[in-house]
């Protein structure tokens, strides 16, 4: 961009700025690697557009306050909150909103101390580490424990609030947690709610999306479904969804891990045959269908589905 002063008549090239920032590349990657999550992607696109337009406005000396980008991700287990947070750090770095673009992922343990006077230094240390990047607080509702009024979590929240207000240029705070618990958390901390501009809800995945996710996961690990296995897995997903403790993409990953175990076992059982590369890569229908979900429609207590 030229450093010359711009008059009212000067035109700016949004397209050139867009190309220069490489945002499209990041957004494409997001589209490729994250299945579904429509509202999340829309919001990220909006934020990207806002930051880009803001940068153009700066050329006309149209100063506006730095937009507050603190976010709250809510959604059921396994809907990709952490994955998106990681991606967010990268996107904000590209857009020049944060300087370093690293993600510091913490939970209550890292913020709250064990005795009086321990919490403030601990929280401040974490905040300082996250400066120039993104502070991701997983299970943020644990910070506030209403049943114990002497809990130190409140102290930590107060420091966070202060930092979120005063050091807006230095770091972005992302809270994550399950929808209803986060709502409770915000109800008891209205200050927190108002300081977070973006509340993004992660929807549950549909069966098609879960199948696409499964295939993507396998591809990154150099595995593939045979066509029968794919059909079997498509049958498996709705069955598994009906059972308890279904954690979206995480459950899919676990199911695939178990299928890999069975595949290894199957190959081991047929040792006398010579194997090709494709055999080592392919999950067969029997690896999927051996799951307990098909046989009895139930899980073990430890969540293991294999018939013993």
């Amino acid at each position: 961009m030229s450093a010359q002063p711009t008059s009212d008549e000067t035109t700016v090239d949004l397209e050139a700025e867009f190309q220069a920032s490489n945002i499209q590349e990041v957004l494409d990657k997001l589209d490729r690697e994250l299945i579904g999550l429509k509202p999340v992607k829309t919001r990220i696109r909006e934020i990207a557009a806002l930051l880009l337009v803001d940068r153009l406005r700066k050329q006309f000396d149209l100063t506006s306050e730095t937009p507050s980008l603190h976010m709250c991700f809510t959604g059921n287990p396994g809907t990709g909150k952490t994955t998106v947070a990681l991606r967010m750090a990268e996107i904000l770095k590209r857009l020049g909103y944060v300087r370093e673009g690293h993600l510091v992922s913490v939970t209550r343990d890292d913020l709250v101390g064990q005795y009086i006077g321990h919490t403030a230094p601990k929280t401040k240390e974490v905040v300082k580490k996250a400066m120039g990047g993104v502070l991701f607080i997983d299970e943020a509702y644990y910070l506030y424990k209403p049943e114990n009024e002497r809990d130190y979590g409140q102290e930590s929240i107060e420091i966070l609030l202060q930092v979120m207000e005063n050091n807006r240029d230095d770091l972005v705070v992302i809270l994550a947690g399950y929808q209803n618990r986060m709502n409770q958390f915000f109800q008891s901390n209205p200050g927190m709610r108002s300081r977070i501009a973006h509340h993004v809800d992660f929807p549950d995945y549909g069966t098609d999306e879960l199948l696409a996710i499964a295939k993507l996961m396998l591809a990154t690990q150099n595995y593939r479904f045979s066509s029968e296995a794919e059909a079997a897995f498509a049958e498996y997903i709705p069955l598994r969804m009906k059972l308890g403790h279904f954690a979206n993409a995480r459950s899919v990953r676990n199911a695939l891990d178990r299928a890999r175990l069975r595949q290894a076992n199957r190959l081991f059982g047929s040792r006398n045959k010579s194997l090709k590369k494709i055999d080592l890569m392919t999950l067969e229908a029997e690896d999927i269908r051996a799951s307990r979900v098909f046989k009895e429609g139930a899980l073990d207590l430890d969540g293991d589905e294999t018939v013993k």
Binding site: E100, H102, K128, K129, M131, G132, G133
Partner: peptide, 17 residues
């Protein structure tokens, strides 16, 4: 003035201190 700061990525935290 407070403990030494380890593992920082950005000077803003130190400047704040």
């Amino acid at each position: 003035f407070g403990p030494p700061m380890f593992d920082l990525k950005d000077p803003a935290g130190i400047l704040m201190e």
